[in-house]
Structures are given as structure tokens and as C-alpha cells.
Nucleic acid binder design. Structure first.
Lengths: 257, 257
DNA sequence: CGGAGTGTTGATAGGAGTCAATATATGTGG
DNA sequence: CCACATATATTGACTCCTATCAACACTCCG
């Protein structure tokens, strides 16, 4: 259930574009609430306020009381926490169709959310949202589903972080992103969207270490680094072997967010 | 909502017991399903099969299709995964009142569960459980609550694993356990229940490193190690400072499971 | 009493962290 | 459109900490 509707994806045009266009490309995804949202879901979302968020903008502050539930329609966001000395920690990547911060009603989310690409979101008061959840079985199912998916994804993150080697960690991230971005999977080109700083914060490494890991993969002939935040996978097989993920790209266990 | 019912806790007798008795002591906790379970919940749980599980026994295998939902009534359990080369990885600790492995209906749990103390559980077929969830709003709320709590707990685990220092990681674990075990919080004595191997698997370290970290804390005068799997906290304040958790013990952000 | 499992301690090596310098890209204003 | 200032990314030198291999002490169990 809730399989992604490939055909519904839009704006997945040809591989050749100008740099500027590529940089500004939005990521549209079939959202769960698109899928099983016949009329009640549409009704519910109609009440939500829609907003556009510029790249780099904070959607929700870390200590904010989380007055509203937020859904990501378009773009990519990260959940983060500013953990004292060791700087920002990125807890999860969020993709279109995700709820941004599912927190217990009334409790603080305990993490902030930032748009790493230009994004579109909807926003609905907590109280209203949870009432809708009570009323609408479909929405209820969606919420529970995302919660369980989040648990799985965070579990993967935990497994990843226990990996001591920096190269392996980075390799897993690349495979994970390649699995997300279908256009990348075909062309073997991944738009990272994340800065080195963000990648480091996500993988629990230092910036320099991430940079070195990239270089290692490059000189090993496993990837190319054609542009700043872009990676071309030359040998997915070797990358998967190195990452200890036998199957390579796939929906498998490598979910994030 | 769903505050723990302290008064309902049983078997929290005096501090002085024989070693044998202490070793076999069970941990009884006010379970969520005890709390708001007037009659319908009782009705639902009555249908569940109850079992006793010996210490060290596998409650659920890693690749098992997860035919049933399991609840932990008494004792402590761990969710684990046998991650190839680097041995067992412990994903989460589970305490009485928790569901063991909340997975999407039909999907594999992707992790095994083992009892680290003698335990009592209930077991109910997936299908039946999820039907009950549909029918019973109270149960529904409990499930969602635990899912959201799990997300928070795993987030803490992610933050913990990004901490590079072994001593800090261990310190956080101790604080976390002290917050769980109320009897320990008063007497400053923590029953670890976990072997060094398990602790290492939980913290993402090697056994030797864990041992060294214990020693470091001991020689620093922060803890005592009176017995094998027992820790006495001499200076909670210094421990908290070291761990970077200013508030010390508390329900705060340090949830596990 | 003895053996297996568990925990501690030591020596060494490898890898990530840290500080520092340089190169490249981004963005702004002239 | 170019020049400059800033942010971002790469590379190098060096240190510290953890992993690893090895030996030993302790505990639990029959």
C-alpha cells in the first residue's frame, strides 16, 4: 500500500539543462496525501495555509512550541539541532510528501527545520490537524505510516553512524540519495543539495573528513565530482560493495526521513 | 497526558537485598495500557497470549515476518540487528510498557528482540491487533504515542552516536539509565542489566573501549563499580557536565525505547 | 576445583580530528 | 560585465583517540 505513483511525477525532463535551471529545479514528488486523498483529504488540506520558503530559510525554530503541523510539498528540508560545541547536527532529511516534525500534540519538536532548496509547504494548526486525524481514517493511516517509516529511517541512520569509517558512511549516503532521486538513478548523477558542512553534520564527521572521503572515492574511480554539489556515480557496484549494501540502489532498507 | 502512574509501581522494596534476589529482581512499570485501559483495553489484552521469557532468549528473530505484535509487561529487552562484520548492533532498549517492534502491518520488523532479563510479554496476531487499533481510539492513541516517543528516543540515540568521545557516550548512557530506573535514581545505583558486549553494541564502540571508559570514570571519582553489572554514581553533577547534559537525571530529552 | 564466559589492562597502528594554508565558487556592488 | 569580498571546498601536517591484537584477572557455573 501507498506505493509511489511514478507516473504522477512531473518536471523530470531531459538531462541537459543550463546550470542556472538545474540549480533552481524543484523536486516534485507524489505525496501520500496526493495518493489516497479522494475528497476528505483534499478538504482537509484546503484549510491549510500554503507558503513558499526560500533556500536556507528556517521553517521552524528548534525551541519553538510547534504550534502547527507542517507538510513538505516541494523541495528538500533538513531537521537539525544545534548541539552546543559540536555545531549543528542534522537529524534527518525530509522529502516532498513528508510531514515536517511529527511531534506529540503540544510537545516541542526538539528540532528545527530548514529548507535546503527552495520549498513549498503547507501549515495547519496542531489542534486542527489532530482533530482531522481523529475524524479521518485515511489521514490517520498516513500519519501512522510516516511515523513507522520515520522509525525505520532513523534506525538506518543509527546503523550508519555506528560505522566507524568515513568513506563507508559517505558511500551509504550517496546510495541513499541515489535511491531517492530517480533522475539520478538513471543518469547516475546525484544532486546533493547539501553543502559539505551539512553532509558532515548528517554523517557525524568533520568537513575536512567528508572532503577527503569524496576525494578518496574519486581517485578510486568510483565517483566523479563534476560540479560542486553534484556527484556522478561511475561504478554503483563498487560503491555498494564498499558501503556494505549488497543490493545497491533500491527502496530497500535505505530510507531517509 | 499519559503521565506515568508512580503509585501503581510495585515491587520497589527496600534497598537491602541479597545478591541473588537483586539479580533476579523484575522491573514492573506502569504500562500505558494499564493507564487508560478501562474496559475495552482490558478486553483487547485479554485475548492476547501471555508468555514468560528466560533471560537471554530471543523473543523475535531478525528476519522473522513479524506475525504478531508483542508487548513487554515485565523485564528489559533489546532490539538488535546482526550487522555482518561488526557484530551485533543494538538499536534500542525496551522497557515494560513498550511495544516490541512496532512495524508496518505485514512488513518485516528488520530487527530481532532479545530479553536481557527474565521477562513477561503478551503476543497478539498482527491482523487482530491492527483491527483493534482501528476500533479502539484509546489503543490508537497509545500506538501513535509510542511511535512518536520512539522517534524522539532514536533521535537521541542519533545525537549520542555522533559524539566522538567514548567516555561521553558512556556517560550519557548511564544518565539515561539512571533516569529510567527510579530506584537507582534515589540510591544512585544503576543496575545495568547489559553486558559490556551489549553496551558496546549499543554505543557503537568496542568492548575494550567501553571497559576503558568505565575505568576512566572510576579513577576520576565520578562512579564506583561495586559489582559486575552495577554502577554507583558518586557525582551525578560531574557526570552530567561531562556528558554535556546540563540538567542531569530527568525525563527530559533522554528517553530510550 | 576447573573451565568457559566475562571483564580489565597493555602495546601498537590506523584513522579521524584539529589547525593552517590554498583554491574555487558565490554573491554583491561598482 | 568585471572586481572584489565572502563563503565554500580541498589539501597538507600533525596529534589524539579508538580499534585491534594479546595477555591476564575475575566471576559464574557445573
Amino acid at each position: 500500500m501507498l506505493a509511489t505513483m511514478e507516473s504522477a511525477a512531473v518536471d523530470r525532463g531531459g538531462a541537459e539543462r543550463s546550470m542556472a535551471a538545474r540549480r533552481q529545479r524543484k523536486t516534485r514528488w507524489p505525496a501520500p496525501w496526493d495518493k489516497l486523498a479522494p475528497e476528505e483529504m483534499q478538504e482537509i488540506l484546503r484549510q491549510a495555509r500554503r507558503e513558499r520558503v526560500a533556500r536556507g530559510k528556517i521553517i521552524m525554530h528548534e525551541d519553538e512550541p510547534a504550534a502547527s503541523v507542517i507538510g513538505l510539498i516541494e523541495g528538500i528540508a533538513v531537521q537539525f539541532r544545534d548541539g552546543g560545541q559540536q555545531g549543528r547536527q542534522i537529524l534527518a532529511l525530509r522529502f516532498p510528501g513528508d510531514f515536517l516534525v511529527l511531534a506529540q500534540e503540544g510537545r516541542a519538536a526538539a528540532c528545527g527545520v530548514e529548507a535546503v532548496t527552495p520549498a513549498r509547504i503547507w501549515r495547519m494548526p496542531q489542534k486542527e490537524f489532530w482533530r482531522s486525524v481523529e475524524d479521518c481514517p485515511a489521514l490517520r493511516r498516513i500519519v501512522l505510516m510516516q511515523a513507522l517509516r520515520d522509525i525505520d529511517a532513523e534506525r538506518e541512520q543509527i546503523v550508519l553512524l555506528r560505522e566507524p569509517s568515513a568513506v563507508v558512511r559517505l558511500g551509504r549516503l550517496l546510495i541513499l540519495l541515489a535511491g531517492r532521486d530517480k533522475s539520478a538513478a538513471t543518469g547516475r548523477r546525484i544532486l546533493l543539495h547539501l553543502s559539505r558542512r551539512d553532509i558532515a553534520a548528517f554523517l557525524g564527521l568533520q568537513i575536512e573528513t567528508v572532503s577527503r572521503a569524496f576525494t578518496q572515492l574519486r581517485v578510486a574511480g568510483i565517483i566523479d565530482l563534476p560540479r560542486r554539489r553534484e556527484v556522478a556515480i561511475r561504478s554503483l557496484e563498487r560503491l555498494a560493495t564498499l558501503a556494505g549494501v549488497p543490493s545497491g540502489i533500491g527502496p530497500g532498507r535505505c530510507g531517509v526521513g
